[in-house]
Design a protein around this nucleic acid. Structure first.
Lengths: 254, 254
DNA sequence: CGGACTGTTGATCAAGGTCAACCTCTGTGG
DNA sequence: CCACAGAGGTTGACCTTGATCAACAGTCCG
């Protein structure tokens, strides 16, 4: 445990998550390094995975933001999720023929392509890492359900509040210390396509949240002035993410 | 291969899916039977999993329909998904503390509770079954993204079309032969909570689809009169589900 | 200096929500 | 056997949220 010295802490955002939830042994760090070979770069706007193509590798995001989206025939676009540093996305591409959505860089990015064999090898070296990744995946599914709830049943004000809350909480997991103000490198058009609203209405809604003193915004810098009211708007009752249940690790002999 | 005799075909809807996609060996059938111990019954309306509680077992639905939903503080409800016979749901409960949503029976049901150990044992006996279940899970995630797209960016008419299309396609996977008319045992209120619409508008929209000759409906019996127009409305370009890529099985030595 | 891109604001419009009345079943108890 | 209640569905009238259209402002680059 605690093979993570202060200086190394900035290395990998996924390692930071792992460390925050389960602590890290030297074996975990080594296993994680097995995933982090083959570092790639992408310019903002570039597609990492194109809808309809096969990829057969997972993505481990080291830095920068991306999004997963799908376009309808007439140009309407739904952003399914924003992908942040430390996200391990799309291991299910290992068992699918072709991607059902496009993943595109929002900012310049660095990321690793993880082959099935690398993942298998890493998990063999550190089963704890395997459990952790499985747990991450389950938290991800839970987040997608929250997103669906927001888009399906919440008002514009609530949806925007939810989005800000989700993104800032996710950033907390990979930032060394919760910042006073968060930089969310997404345009209002992306917010609109993520929440199912129009650009114009997102602008108005953000202005309203600011007028009401829930947030303060300047460009892409967001400051949460009232956590209580933001959470209430976003209909968040329990904290996220859940912690990893202790008995899972013991019961799996890892 | 083909250990499935005609008479056994009605036994398990999951077995039928497996057979349809990969064929079944005697080992697969036996492995699947390891999952199907402990048959439970539930009356319509009963909760199988309550939001906020721990369960630590997956559900294998043998017969009947269920839904996964979440309620907001003021009573608004979002149905995340409908669960049909042959669905293997919530293996991620193995690694989570408490459920983030409620699963409730819509009709009387029979289902099996699958413990982590049973799953592990079954997969050990038949790795092919493991790959199949993983692939099912990835198809499920893809379906959830389609659902999100529909709710976020499609009109009422398109959303209802999408729902009917999704449910009938899923039924096709577990029915012995595609029926002329599908019985969807869900009220219009559930359709509304699934699509993010109001009950009244679902009623009007169904009436319109019928008036336009896209579907014919009588109570909960739905007949698709124009597959082409339904698919166009639902913005379906590719078939669903995808088939399982052949090389996955070989590359995993199973 | 002139575009392109992003965001803001106002005016208008429409999709869909809400409310209410009513209808048809179906089951239930007198 | 009928009366009644309750659930689910349909229809009409009206209203609200958020979409659409358009003009304009700031910013970043070439």
């Amino acid at each position: 445990m605690n093979a993570l010295a202060a200086g190394q802490a900035t290395e990998s955002p996924l390692l930071r998550k792992l460390h925050g939830f389960m602590g890290t042994s030297a074996a975990d760090v080594r296993a994680l390094q097995l995933l982090s070979t083959r570092l790639h770069h992408a310019a903002a706007g570039k597609s990492l995975v194109e809808q309809g193509t096969a990829s057969r590798s997972a993505l481990l995001i080291e830095s920068g933001w991306a999004m997963r989206h799908r376009c309808l025939s007439d140009g309407r676009r739904q952003i399914m999720e924003f992908l942040l540093p430390g996200d391990f996305c799309d291991p299910s591409s290992f068992v699918t023929c072709s991607a059902d959505s496009t993943i595109a860089a929002i900012t310049p990015m660095t990321y690793c392509l993880v082959a099935p064999e690398s993942l298998l090898e890493a998990i063999t070296h550190s089963p704890r890492l395997g459990v952790f990744l499985w747990w991450l995946e389950s938290q991800h599914a839970s987040m997608m359900r929250s997103h669906l709830s927001a888009v399906g049943r919440m008002s514009a004000r609530e949806r925007v509040a939810y989005l800000i809350w989700e993104l800032t909480r996710r950033l907390d997991l990979v930032l060394p210390v919760p910042p006073a103000a968060y930089t969310l490198p997404i345009s209002q058009e992306m917010m609109a396509d993520g929440t199912g609203l129009s650009v114009v209405h997102v602008s108005r809604t953000l202005a309203r949240l600011q007028r009401e003193g829930v947030i303060h915004r300047h460009g892409q810098t967001y400051q949460i002035l009232s956590t209580v009211r933001l959470r209430a708007l976003a209909q968040i009752e329990s904290d996220w993410p859940q912690s990893l249940p202790a008995d899972v690790l013991t019961s799996m002999n890892v």
